[in-house]
Design a binder for these strands. Sequence first.
DNA 1: CGTTGGGTTGAGCTTGTTCAACCACCGTGG
DNA 2: CCACGGTGGTTGAACAAGCTCAACCCAACG
Lengths: 264, 264
Amino acid sequence: MGVSAASRVALLVLHSAPQPLRPPSVITGRGIAKPLPCLTCPAKAKNVCKPLEYDRQKELFQLGHQSKWEPRQFLFRAGSPAGPLFKIISGIVAVSKGLPDGRRQIIALVFPGDICGYTQINGQYVYDGEAITPVTACAFDRSRFNAFIHRNPDVADAMATLLQEKLERVRQHLTIVGQLTSTERLASFLSMLARAYSEHGFQVRPLVMPMKRSDVSEYLGLRTETISRAFTKLRKQRLIELDDDDSIIICDPIRLSRLGNAMD
Amino acid sequence: MGVSAASRVALLVLHSAPQPLRPPSVITGRGIAKPLPCLTCPAKAKNVCKPLEYDRQKELFQLGHQSKWEPRQFLFRAGSPAGPLFKIISGIVAVSKGLPDGRRQIIALVFPGDICGYTQINGQYVYDGEAITPVTACAFDRSRFNAFIHRNPDVADAMATLLQEKLERVRQHLTIVGQLTSTERLASFLSMLARAYSEHGFQVRPLVMPMKRSDVSEYLGLRTETISRAFTKLRKQRLIELDDDDSIIICDPIRLSRLGNAMD
DNA sequence: CGTTGGGTTGAGCTTGTTCAACCACCGTGG
DNA sequence: CCACGGTGGTTGAACAAGCTCAACCCAACG
């Protein structure tokens, strides 16, 4: 099953929320026509942007700029000076911690609407943030973003909620990695992925794998070979079907979720 | 090495910060002499209480009450209706997630000054909170605590910082459990413990184990036998010495920390 | 003084890792 | 157009890390 990143990604993008192409133009103070992309941004309804009406949204938007990354490009790197933080608009980012000897733990997958690159220690990023699909994101200037939060209590609230959710997800993740067997881990991972996909309006049947085996293995604390074997185990138990491209059909979501100890 | 919970705990308590015994009395509005224990509380300087001057501290204190728990008693249980949240004053609490089949993952050890029991979903606690030493804590009424936070932006700030720290610790923990070998995990655990102890003014030489092997195993995602073997491995490498009670001398903190991949 | 709870150790087993071969797919350059 | 190498995935065989089961020890306690 040799799937290129390109084809994997093409399938995924095909079903993600449509990108804003021609947002309505608005007139700025200086009389120049300038569209505010937020008006049609699919991530507008998520966390920090959610409570913002037009003026404040515009204010926030001007603290940063939108950029794009190709798969395998880094949005930020551990150890480098902490620059902007990112709100993902489309695509998926893997946030990971690398050990000196090359081992890596993926800490979280960041989906559209979520924020990453926020953690900094001694003025440096602590984790790597790598695009695993094509990614668009708003990159916000860190100190101005924080100042904005302090001026806007409702945004601070949204930020606190976001932190809480992140915390819950990592705790879940820890329990999975600490307690489950390889097959259970993969089962819970796939259930989680399916839930995340449906929440973000991606298609779930089939479910297009956003990442390669080695990413899954770094997420679950296993080796790629073990992931591969776990896949075939799930296939033989008729819980999933593996397409010849890299998409998956979950035949029995309930049993799959139960096998993963309902951690999704 | 049969160490009773009593002796383990006695040793630990011996060196923890002294408890307030007779805080200065103050006069309340109604003219009754009433001491505010916070004035001498060793956890006063930590997170939510830190920014509070006398009046607000008193206000917060009156949202709850102080209680004590013996080792192996639960402050809160997953699935039961979400009651108060707790700020630990002395002792250590293990917060854990249990799987239906009895497997358990300890999510965090909560030290004095820290808060636990905060997470709730659908009005229920999500985790178990178990005292592993004698514990004193302030139990705060949940909704009134949240209201208090909303009235006091500086406290909200402290709460956000606390969340951030918790998040970092869990991510660290996940990386340890996901990537390190059993001996490495124990090494990093002991380094972490030593750092936490010295931060809280507990003695570090010798370092008194606050918990039994089975707790350590549930923290690190291993079995008690593996923990035991890892201990003897570290001992044979002369990184630590095991006393016949359950205290540990870290002979070579630097090498120990390095063996744990400097995750402390 | 027997019982209980916690810790250690050994022997054998299971799970997951390592190493290697192999395949399918894709992009590149004769 | 085909030969080629590179990437990603699967599978097998040998191996090792960690788990299971059991025996045993020690200290505390009734």
